[in-house]
Amino acid sequence: MKMKGRVFRFGDNVSTDVHLSVKYRPPEHTLEDLKRDAFREIDPDFASSVRAGDLVVAGENFGLVSSRADAAVVLRELGVSCVLAKSYGHMFYRNAINMGLPVVECDTDAIRAGDEVEVDLEAGAVRVGDERIDFSPYPAALLTMVSAGGLIPFLKEEGDYPA
């Protein structure tokens, strides 16, 4: 599974409270409301300018704190094809894959906003210009899972992990 797109760049410790700030959220909200205001605190133009296939690249502890699966769903629904970060909040990491959003832990220091990057989950490689950044590749089961849209859709389609 390969993704190619433009980079939106965030820093360290972007918590799920920034993904989905309660500041802008009406009490009765839909997924559309959450999408419109995603990351508004740190990048007011993110939601309006992100295009299908684009990537989010961050530093340490992306998606810290909460177990809110919406934080991953919003990124997927905005068309983000993959997230690259140096480390993750563990709930966000699991929720992302369970919701069908590929997340990769790798060194992101060399990646800048607006870069065109290519990610190969199977090979465990990110390409930025002439640079190659390696990461632990996705096993076949997880590739199928993110393609299917997450853990439960994957099991509905496949029934079980491949032998």
């Binding site: 177990s67 699966a69 699991r94 929720n95 894959i97 369970n98 089961a141 997880l142 899972m145 853990l151 439960i152 099991l155 029934g159 079980d160 992990y161």
Partner: peptide, 16 residues
């Protein structure tokens, strides 16, 4: 684990 993960273990006996 989250509830969806528990459901998946009921179905497969495995988890990622």
């Amino acid at each position: 684990v989250e509830s969806g993960e528990t459901a998946s273990v009921f179905a497969t006996g495995k988890l990622w």
